[in-house]
């Protein structure tokens, strides 16, 4: 049960039920669809990229489990206002956290600190893809790809 409470913390349940930035911005200039064929979950990440690689707006739509919705929701809150490079770097660190490559105690900035609530997925290897789907999709949108799949 402890593992489950770690996975389904209040913050995650809240973001999962009331995802932030769950919308389609009309002025988005990049988007990509993310697909998890294993579960049929699908989401679209929209980006409004400004000059100098600044993420001026980031939002998403779609459906998925509490983990994928919460991760997408938190991602939009954290990434807005960052540069593309900062966002990519953050995903790399986050990815290392949820796959257990980096220890949780090493979170050394506020953004990673917020994402630590998602680190519980590393006890549930089948669910790591849920936690990273939105991030992979955002990266694909930045790369100019239309679609990405977790398989």
């Amino acid at each position: 049960m402890d593992d489950l409470r770690d996975l389904y913390q209040e913050v995650i349940l809240d973001h999962g039920k009331n995802p932030r930035n769950f919308r389609h911005p009309e002025d988005a200039n990049r988007h990509a669809e993310g697909d998890n064929p294993l579960c049929g979950d699908r989401l679209t990440v929209y980006l409004k990229m400004g000059h100098n690689g600044l993420v001026e707006d980031v939002a998403f739509e779609g459906r998925g489990c509490a983990i994928s919705m919460a991760s997408a929701s938190m991602m939009t809150e954290i990434v807005a206002g960052k540069t593309e490079q900062e966002a990519r770097a953050l995903f790399r660190r986050f990815h290392d956290f949820v796959t257990g490559r980096e220890e949780i105690g090493e979170a050394d900035n506020d953004d990673l600190e917020k994402l630590i609530v998602l680190a519980g997925v590393k006890q549930f290897p089948m669910r790591v893809k849920c936690a990273t789907l939105a991030w992979h999709t955002m990266t694909a949108a930045m790369d100019g790809q239309d679609a990405v799949t977790t398989e």
């Binding site: 489950l4 049929g40 979950d41 509490a66 983990i67």
Partner: peptide
Amino acid sequence: DGIHPHDIGTIVDREGVAVRVGHHCAQ
């Protein structure tokens, strides 16, 4: 209601209950 099948599958698994969650290869 309000709970995604994948979350259900993970939680019941910790109770020892193996169910299938997903599209069952029948999209």
